[in-house]
Structure formats: structure tokens, C-alpha cells
């Protein structure tokens, strides 16, 4: 089934202007994409410090790679591909250095209102998300949080459509099962 949800909110001329050397356009790109980039990175790596590092590194790489950005390509999948790579590299680096990454840093502001009584819904969601395999978490976030079409997620991850749908389905199954348990325990 084709996905028709909108997933692009930036002026499509901005990447081309940035590619042509327009710093103002690049600044606008960063300004527009930073919140989404940080949100994705935070959910991927699990703490704000690493997320900010991944995002910053991704934008540096984007800036120095603009010359290779194809004029008819879409910017967001390209950015998220680089960002996802940075997140994976950072997670691997942290793992190698044997640092325990505590996923589930509770966002300071902007969370959805809680409806549950005894359970902190946001914390539970982050906990379950952290248990997902990286590739499932990545696919779920791109699809259901960043609203990307499967075709774009495929461009980001380099994975085929059917495999991506399976990853998202499995992630949803785990989230449904565990969060339903949490809510049932809270009753």
C-alpha cells in the first residue's frame, strides 16, 4: 500500500542553494531540520549528549558533501541516512568503550500529556523502545515518528521495502504487547 502522508516540510530549493554555496540557505536547512534530527537521534542513541554529537556530526558531513547532492534528490532521506549512520557509529563506539548507555532519558519538555495514573507512560514507552533491536527501532521511528514513506526509509537504510515493513510490524507488535501489559498492570 502506498503511503501518502506528507513527509517534507522544507523549501526544496534550499538544498540546491546551499549546494551552490549559499550559507544562508544552509543555515535555514539546519534551523528547519534540527528539531527532527535531534528527536530521531535521541530516540536512537538514548541520551541527549550523544544525540547532539550525532546531529552535529551529521550536519558537518552534509555540508561537506553537498557537492555530491543530486539536484533531483530529496534532502530529508539523504540527511537521515547520514544521521542514522552517525547514530549507529556512535552506538558502536560507545559499546566498544564498554560504556553503559542508559536509554530512556526523559525529555525535559514537550512530552505528550499523560493519562495514566500510576505509570509514567513516557518512561515506559522509552523503556520498551530501548529493548527493540536497532534496525527495528530505526525503522519504527522513521515510519511512525518521522512520517517517512517506506520508499524514503529504504533510501535511508538501504533495506528493501518488504523487509522494512516486517521490521516496523515487529516493532509495533512488541510495543503493543509490552505497553498493553504495562497498562493492564496499572489497572
Amino acid at each position: 500500500m502506498s503511503d501518502t502522508r506528507p513527509n517534507s516540510s522544507i523549501d526544496p530549493t534550499l538544498p540546491l542553494r546551499a549546494k551552490a554555496g549559499d550559507r544562508q540557505a544552509f543555515a535555514q536547512l539546519v534551523d528547519a531540520m534540527y528539531p527532527r534530527s535531534l528527536r530521531f537521534a535521541l530516540h536512537m542513541v538514548g541520551n541527549r549528549e550523544d544525540a547532539e554529537e550525532a546531529v552535529q556530526d551529521a550536519f558537518v558531513r552534509v555540508y561537506h558533501s553537498l557537492g555530491r547532492f543530486r539536484d533531483d534528490a530529496r534532502f530529508e532521506p539523504w540527511l537521515f541516512r547520514i544521521l542514522a549512520n552517525r547514530c549507529r557509529s556512535l552506538m558502536e563506539k560507545r559499546r566498544r568503550h564498554a560504556r553503559i548507555i542508559q536509554y530512556g532519558e526523559v525529555p525535559e519538555r514537550g512530552s505528550a500529556p499523560m493519562e495514566t495514573s500510576g505509570v509514567d507512560w513516557t518512561v515506559e514507552v522509552h523503556k520498551v523502545l530501548a529493548t527493540l533491536p536497532v534496525e527495528q527501532r530505526e525503522a519504527f521511528l522513521l515510519r511512525h515518528v518521522e512520517d517517512m514513506a517506506y520508499e524514503d526509509i529504504s533510501a535511508v537504510t538501504g533495506v528493501g521495502l518488504s523487509a522494512l515493513r516486517m521490521r516496523v510490524k515487529r516493532a509495533c507488535d512488541v510495543l503493543r504487547a509490552r505497553l498493553t501489559e504495562v497498562m493492564a498492570d496499572d489497572r
Binding site: Y34, P35, L38, R39, L42, H43, R48, P107, E108, R109, G110, S111, A112, W121, T122, V125, L129, L141, H144, V145, L175, L179
Partner: peptide, 11 residues
């Protein structure tokens, strides 16, 4: 879940 995750962080 989506609403919760889209709400954070307030970058």
C-alpha cells in the same frame, strides 16, 4: 506511542 515520541525533545 507516536504522539509521545513526537513530543520530545523540545529541540
Amino acid at each position: 506511542v507516536r504522539t509521545t515520541l513526537r513530543g520530545s525533545p523540545d529541540a
